[in-house]
Amino acid sequence: MREYRRTRRGIALFLALYFAGGLLTLLRPEEEVFPVYSWFLFALVPGAGEQYGLLLEEVNGQPVEPPRLYQEAAGLVRSPHSVIAHKLIQRFGAAVESRDPVQSGARELLEKNWLPLQARYAVVKLNADPIARWKNGRYEVQPLQTFTKPAP
């Protein structure tokens, strides 16, 4: 019976710690200490605002005319609709804008795992309302910096 009571207390403690730890991860920049997470998925309703984008200007020595956003570059990149690539672009964009060296690992991950063998691309800031962008495809582009991934 003692073991049963200990188990009950242990489970209650585990749940309480996970809940508290999950909320505390919100204080961290990456908002997670695997596998402890706040689970605040889609917590905010997106309005008009800024996101980062990656504009491909040259791929494997061939210019891309007009330059295309990563997610619109089907045929040039392997997984244009990848959420992982999108998140990496957001991290990379934030790092470029704030000149944060800690986040610069995002560039290496992007270039090695998601971009073609050789590419020249611009990190840009996109300004749009999501519903308007969905309906008419319009957004404002503000270039931040151009990078080149050299051929191997």
Binding site: V45, Q51, Q71, P80, P130, I131, W134
Partner: peptide, 17 residues
């Protein structure tokens, strides 16, 4: 708000096209 889910869906679909 009434349009909240539509905004969430639009944002998700445009961010990954």
């Amino acid at each position: 708000m009434p349009g909240a889910l539509a905004a969430i869906v639009a944002d998700r679909l445009v961010e990954t096209n």
